[in-house]
Amino acid sequence: MSLMKIFTNGFIKENPLFVLVLGTCPSLATTTSATNGLGMGLATTFVLGLSNLAIALTARHIPDKVRIPAFIVIIATLVTIVDLLMSAWVNSPGPNGEPSLYDQLGIFIPLIVVNCIVLGRAEAFASKNKPIASLLDGLGSGLGFTFALSLVGSIRELLGSGSVFGLNLLPAQSNILIFILAPGGFIVLGYVIALVNRLKRT
């Protein structure tokens, strides 16, 4: 498989959220706006890329019996690094005192550790492949996840607050509040996956 193919595979054909339905927790909780979805996606991509790289480099030296704990330590380390970096540099409030991106994503940053996508790619791909291919696989899956989160976030933000990435598109009267609340998350994701299923059949 060519490197390009490895990269695009995770993006479209095996999109972690739409096709494999992995990582549903953050994709429902952090997609109340397109910006949040994008931020969460990029944080996950960072962890996925580096964890795949680190695991591809070390997997041969790790005995089978401690494989999973070793992977978990590597992933948790990277997640903590992302958490620290984000709380240092994307943590300033908006012009009207809106919570910072870090505050909005909140507990879901440390929860990247238990995102099935990360451990899943480590097991299924990185532990058996070369470092460069693994890095690309991680980045591909991560960007596919980012794309999925941004799409769900955009739909919810458009229907719920009438804007996309903070850009006002619809008048306030047409806002359907339920879409930025919990039920809206389930419903939008459900319909988007149904649509992907439909497109895949043709």
Binding site: V21, A182, P183, G184, G185, F186, I187, L189, G190, Y191, I193, A194, N197
Partner: peptide, 12 residues
């Protein structure tokens, strides 16, 4: 999955 998610939405 889709119908499960939509049902979960209504339950929520």
């Amino acid at each position: 999955v889709p119908i499960a998610l939509i049902t979960a939405g209504i339950l929520a």
